[in-house]
Each structure stands twice: as structure tokens, then as C-alpha cells.
């Protein structure tokens, strides 16, 4: 019975995607949309073809890898410092009082709105993109970490003290484990916004990467290339968020959510 239900979900899902592609195909062939919009066969054909035949100077693999590298390097740094500052603010009231006003003031600025400033400060190269992604990750992760430290269950703190833990042990064995799921949800959200930000940044200024694919398509009026770029962004985005979720469920096996 459960196997049947599972298969039903899979089959209907596949049917859904197939219907979607059929509608897309029919719309381009039967209506005037076909003049501006390529059909799905062309788009997906072009997408896979781009792995062999370069678009611009690079193949699809390289475009994706370049975008991923641009995103992951500052993501790691932003994550590291975000966790660090979040933990400091959560654990020490003084750090909270010092840093919180700045975080509250700077966080409402969408990462994308930093683009002009980052271009002036760090130029058109990788530097400005690293800066943007760093910002996109840092605030989110710092705040979720902070909330995590504050969500520590007071009775668990008591239990730990009762069993003889000192402050350092309390921090390592109780506060950190409680915070880990929060850090992961922050990392997850930050990953999504980092990916959106890198796409935007590449669209504004770059000479390779998935965002460039799109904006270059727009410049030369090549809709197929735009759609190929969008497919690449969607699939890569899906891949990295799924990987992150798998990692989370491996590392947080004790929570009900992690199952």
C-alpha cells in the first residue's frame, strides 16, 4: 500500500512535468509565442549541447563551476564569521550590545543593493562578488546562530550543571549542540540568497558564469540562450540545496526534523 502511494506520487509528478513540457511545446508551436520563445526540446537540447560546445569561451560545466566557486568561497567565510559573531553575541551580553545595533541597521538592506557600492570598493572582478556573497550569508547566519544560542532549554542547562559541568563544558556540550540545527537552517536560507545574489551580480557585470549566460542572451536577443541559462540556474540551485539538506539530516540525526 505504501509502495503504491509512493509510486503514485512519482508517476503523477512525472506526468505533471510532462504535461508542463507539452503545454510549453504546444504554446510555442501553435501560438505567436513561438516567435519569441524557443520550445523545450531546443532549450534542453541546447543545455546539454553546451556541455560539449562552449557558449562564449567556456562550456556549461565551466560556467556552472565558475559561478559555484564565486559563491562558495565567500559563503564559507560568511558562514564561519556569521557563526562566530552569532555565538559571541548569544553568549556574551556585551558583544550582543555592541554588534546588534549594526546588524539590525545593515540587515534590511537587500544584498543586491550593495552591488553599486561593492563595485566601487572592490572593482569589477571577483572581489566585489565575494564581498556581496559574504554580506548575503553573514547577517542571516549570525542572526539564526544568535537565536539558536538563546533558545537553549534552561532545564538542560540545569541538568548539565547538576551533573557537574563547568562553564566551558556547558558551552561545548549543551549550547553548541542546541545551536547546530539553527546554524543549519541559517546556512540553508543563506545558500538560497547567495545563489540569487551571485546570479544578479553576474548579470550586472561579468564575462562568464550562469548569470552572464542569461544577460548575454538578452544583449544579443537570443532567447534560447536565456532559457538555457535559466535551466542551468534552476538545476544547480536544486542540486546545492538538496546536498545541503542531506548533509543536515546526516549531522542532526537526533532531531525529529532531521529524519
Amino acid at each position: 500500500m505504501r509502495a503504491y502511494e509512493k509510486n503514485k506520487r512519482l508517476i503523477l509528478g512525472a506526468v505533471g512535468i510532462f504535461i508542463f513540457l507539452c503545454i510549453w511545446y504546444a504554446a510555442t508551436k501553435l501560438t505567436s509565442l513561438g516567435k519569441v520563445m524557443p520550445d523545450p526540446v531546443t532549450v534542453f537540447g541546447g543545455f546539454f549541447h553546451a556541455f560539449i560546445q562552449p557558449i562564449g569561451t567556456r562550456t556549461m560545466t565551466m560556467h556552472i563551476l565558475i559561478s559555484l566557486r564565486r559563491m562558495l568561497i565567500p559563503y564559507v567565510f560568511g558562514g564561519f564569521f556569521g557563526v562566530l559573531v552569532g555565538v559571541l553575541m548569544g553568549w556574551y551580553k556585551a558583544a550582543d550590545a555592541i554588534f546588534m545595533p549594526y546588524i539590525q541597521m545593515l540587515r534590511p538592506i537587500p544584498p543586491i543593493a550593495w552591488i553599486p557600492l561593492s563595485i566601487i570598493w572592490f572593482g569589477f572582478d571577483e572581489g566585489s562578488k565575494y564581498f556581496l556573497i559574504f554580506l548575503a550569508c553573514f547577517f542571516t547566519i549570525a542572526l539564526t546562530t544568535y537565536n539558536g544560542v538563546h533558545s537553549v532549554d534552561e532545564t538542560l542547562v540545569r541538568a548539565s550543571k547538576m551533573l557537574g559541568a563547568n562553564d566551558r563544558q556547558l558551552f561545548l556540550t549543551i549550547v553548541l549542540p542546541t545551536t547546530v540545527p539553527y546554524i543549519f537552517s541559517g546556512l540553508q536560507v543563506a545558500l538560497g540568497s547567495a545563489w540569487a545574489t551571485i546570479v544578479a551580480a553576474e548579470m550586472i557585470r561579468s564575462s562568464e558564469g550562469v548569470g552572464w549566460l542569461i544577460v548575454r542572451g538578452q544583449d544579443v536577443g537570443n532567447m534560447t540562450q536565456i532559457m538555457i541559462g535559466i535551466v542551468a540556474i534552476a538545476l544547480t540551485g536544486l542540486l546545492i540545496t538538496t546536498l545541503m539538506r542531506v548533509l543536515e539530516s546526516k549531522l542532526c540525526a537526533w532531531t525529529v526534523r532531521g529524519k
Binding site: 538542560l156 540545569r158 541538568a159 547538576m162 549542540p177 547546530v180 542532526c252
Partner: peptide, 20 residues
């Protein structure tokens, strides 16, 4: 004057560490 290992407590809501 402070909690200590010579006084063990069993809590109503168990207060087990869920990650252990």
C-alpha cells in the same frame, strides 16, 4: 551555593540531552 555533582536531580520533564 551552586549546583554540584554530589546532588543529583531527576527532572519532571526528564531534561535528557536529545542529541546524546
Amino acid at each position: 551555593d551552586r549546583p554540584g555533582p554530589e546532588r543529583g536531580m531527576v527532572f519532571q520533564n526528564t531534561a535528557l540531552f536529545p542529541w546524546l
